[in-house]
């Protein structure tokens, strides 16, 4: 069995044994999203107008909370050391970790997103696009967040710091994710937005494992 599959299987097994951890992130996502109507009032048109943005912003914030523990347990108990000493390059480890993060956090967030859109009465035309943008955008966020998690390993107040590093980097995903949904609702073409989101994903897929591996290498030193 190759290293990627081994690490992935271990991560999934771990997250199944600690299923509560993923559930808490999704719960935070839903809770943060239902705060907005209390703040701005329940006027249906306004909520429908806000829906794409709120779903995306709260999904991003929920994802930020999940990154802090991505490498920290492995760093603290020596697993990361052993992974680094394995026969697979650290880039593979980084990719496996990002994939595992998406499966255990990104994917659940994506599934929960239409539910929140429903509470906000997102127009029917938006749901498919919402799912597609989430499917294209959340893996990119997992990849970029993995870099942030590796960079802040062992830092004082790593969690808050991680958000400070990662949030500016994912603004483009937020911009095109919400714009695609808005365009779909308005009946405008949105293929370009999706292509750009796909492009971001491919770029991140190639580049972020290199950055993550470099960060992990010096975290272990």
């Amino acid at each position: 069995m190759n290293a990627l599959a081994l690490i992935l299987r271990r991560e999934i097994r771990l997250s199944m044994r600690q299923a509560g951890d993923s559930a808490i992130i999704v719960l935070f996502f839903v809770l943060a999203a239902i705060l907005f109507p209390f703040g701005v009032g329940p006027e249906p048109n306004m909520l429908a107008r806000m829906a794409p943005g709120v779903v995306w912003v709260t999904a991003l914030l929920a994802a930020m909370l999940s990154f802090e523990r991505l490498f920290a347990p492995d760093y603290e108990d020596g697993s990361l050391e052993q992974l680094a000493l394995g026969p697979a390059p650290l880039e593979t480890v980084a990719l496996a970790k990002a994939a595992a993060h998406w499966l255990t956090t990104g994917f659940p967030l994506m599934i929960a997103a239409p539910l929140i859109a429903l509470l906000y009465r997102l127009p029917d035309a938006g749901y498919n696009t919402l799912l597609i943008t989430m499917a294209l955008g959340t893996p990119t966020i997992s990849l970029i967040g993995t870099v942030g998690a590796a960079l802040t390993l062992g830092a004082r107040r790593g969690g808050v710091l991680l958000s400070l590093l990662v949030i500016p980097l994912i603004i483009p995903i937020l911009i095109f994710g919400t714009a695609a949904i808005d365009a779909a609702i308005g009946g405008y073409p949105f293929r370009q937005h999706l292509l750009l989101l796909g492009g971001f994903f491919l770029g991140a897929l190639v580049l972020t494992p290199i950055a993550t591996a470099a960060a992990l290498r010096q975290a272990l030193e």
Partner: peptide, 18 residues
């Protein structure tokens, strides 16, 4: 090099839930 060695350090690389 990594394929040729076993390293047993202070940390045990074990998960309590496994």
């Amino acid at each position: 090099h990594h394929g040729r060695l076993h390293f047993i350090g202070h940390l045990d690389a074990q998960k309590p839930v496994l």
